[in-house]
Design a protein around this nucleic acid. Sequence first.
DNA 1: TAATCTCTCCATCAATTGATGCAAACAAAT
DNA 2: ATTTGTTTGCATCAATTGATGGAGAGATTA
Lengths: 219, 219
Amino acid sequence: MGKGILMATPLEKARRDPNSMKAKILASARKIFSKNGFSGTTTRMIAKAVGIDISTLYYHWGEKADLYNAVLMDTQEELRQELKRIEKIIHGKPLPNRLEIAINESCDYLFQNPEITNLILLNYFTKPKGKDITEFHFIDIITGIAISMGLAMDKDKITKQAKARVMAVMLSLFNFIAGKKFLSPIIGAECRDYLDVVKETLNFILIPAFMQEKKINES
Amino acid sequence: MGKGILMATPLEKARRDPNSMKAKILASARKIFSKNGFSGTTTRMIAKAVGIDISTLYYHWGEKADLYNAVLMDTQEELRQELKRIEKIIHGKPLPNRLEIAINESCDYLFQNPEITNLILLNYFTKPKGKDITEFHFIDIITGIAISMGLAMDKDKITKQAKARVMAVMLSLFNFIAGKKFLSPIIGAECRDYLDVVKETLNFILIPAFMQEKKINES
DNA sequence: TAATCTCTCCATCAATTGATGCAAACAAAT
DNA sequence: ATTTGTTTGCATCAATTGATGGAGAGATTA
């Protein structure tokens, strides 16, 4: 009965065939959950967006929380792949360049996939009660980044401070993306303009911070 | 019929008498909305927390969205007062001190009132559809801070960049507070320890950024 | 062709939710 | 004491929501 090798999870099936009904539902669910949160989303909304009956949705994904979990895991995996891609690009370059490129690349990516940041952030402000929902596994992601940024040498010897600094970077980034709709009228910039201001602001704030660290390390 | 002077809004009445039923409901509503968001909260939850029947709640506050609006406006006003208080403290001091004190004070305050950041952040990730909900009036708040930080001279001549930088500061702060439950296990610090790490991280990131700005201005 | 398997929708359920009418309790004013 | 106005809870409603059973369509296999 072990589904280790023979059985494929619904999520695996969906990823295998992007044209399948499972995949279509998953894609619509991501959009709608990211916009309305878990409790603000109804299974009927998703089914309507796909153009199917809710019972078809339940047939493929089981209960609402299961679908939500699948969306979270799918999103998480995608983000992880993207971070790996960025890490490859910046590998070996000097620190300030690394930071600038990483900011640039991740801004572009997240800007084109705003559901990702929305889902992640929404998932810690509100959690469906009673259901156990997948946690984002940030710990290994940020340890990777911390090492890549020279904040730690060893995977097991990362200080609280280093982790907090990496989280600060990610949070700044995520919030400018997820809060776009809210922030762009405040800042007074739209679309591409907004994206440019965000990149500049992140560079302004992050580069001096992590350069000071380097100076201390060098001395 | 104009309620300009003679009529008091429910919110004004609630503030006038903190022991009134209106005030009790408002306080409970704040807690519960901030934890579950608008659609994750039911009027029955709030009524139960106060120990009253839902019809009593409706009698005092009208429909759910009205109560939610009152909570947002109340919270906003409270935050505004607090920021004024902090500004008085830091007024006249040199920039790095100002920043450090402001970070320290606002961290302490928001940490003890975590509902505030939760409500603000939740309110831009998800908005109840169909209802018009109060927007937080950040524009005047951040222009005030921008001037106080020396990022702008005139109230009307604030660049997009300056506004974005102030927002970056607030977002970093808000997220460390609102995301505490999520972040503290990742960072590996609890309670007071977490608070200290957050303060240190914010200082680490923000002070160098805004000091570089000052150096450019001075030269 | 017959049998089996996969997928889809219609009809329906029970529970929850926002919201209201109404009568009783209570206090204040006459 | 009687009237008036305010507050509160019980009972109830209609709409929404998560979820399921079962019948039928369609393809695949025997």
